[in-house]
């Protein structure tokens, strides 16, 4: 078989070639084909809406994350901090075992009550 075996091909192949092909494009078909391709090529060159909005979406997501971080319980309200400090002090104190709450600061009771109610 040489490299141009389609040259001088058998007659039935000519017949097959003649019948097994689409109708050629006319002027309207060519214009339609080119216009559709041109439109798709232009769309490729143009940044898509998703690409254009991506930086805005990322910025909004970062802002939302920052907002959540600010609201996280890592930095408790002042009263809770104060309460925890006193509780820690009480744990360390010998007076905790005396079952005598009279030694607790008066302010503790007020804050503890407010905390429990909340």
């Amino acid at each position: 078989m040489n490299d141009r075996e389609h040259d001088g091909r058998e007659p039935w192949l000519e017949e097959l070639d003649r019948h097994w092909r689409p109708e050629a494009l006319d002027d309207v078909g060519r214009a339609r084909f080119d216009a559709r391709l041109r439109e798709r090529m232009d769309a490729t060159a143009r940044p898509s809406l998703v690409r254009r909005l991506a930086p805005v979406a990322i910025a909004l997501a970062l802002m939302a994350l920052a907002g959540l971080a600010l609201r996280s319980p890592e930095v408790p309200p002042a009263d809770e901090t104060q309460l925890a400090a006193w509780e820690w002090e009480l744990l360390l104190s010998d007076e905790l075992n005396d079952e005598d709450s009279s030694t607790l600061p008066e302010e503790y009771s007020a804050i503890a009550s407010a905390f429990l109610i909340r």
Binding site: W20, R21, P22, A24, L25, R30, F33, D34, L37
Partner: peptide, 21 residues
């Protein structure tokens, strides 16, 4: 390139996909 190959590309595709224009 598109202008010179469009018809052949379309015909080849037609033959490869089985006659669905």
């Amino acid at each position: 390139f598109v202008v010179s190959h469009r018809e052949r590309a379309r015909r080849l595709a037609w033959r490869l996909v089985g006659g669905d224009l």
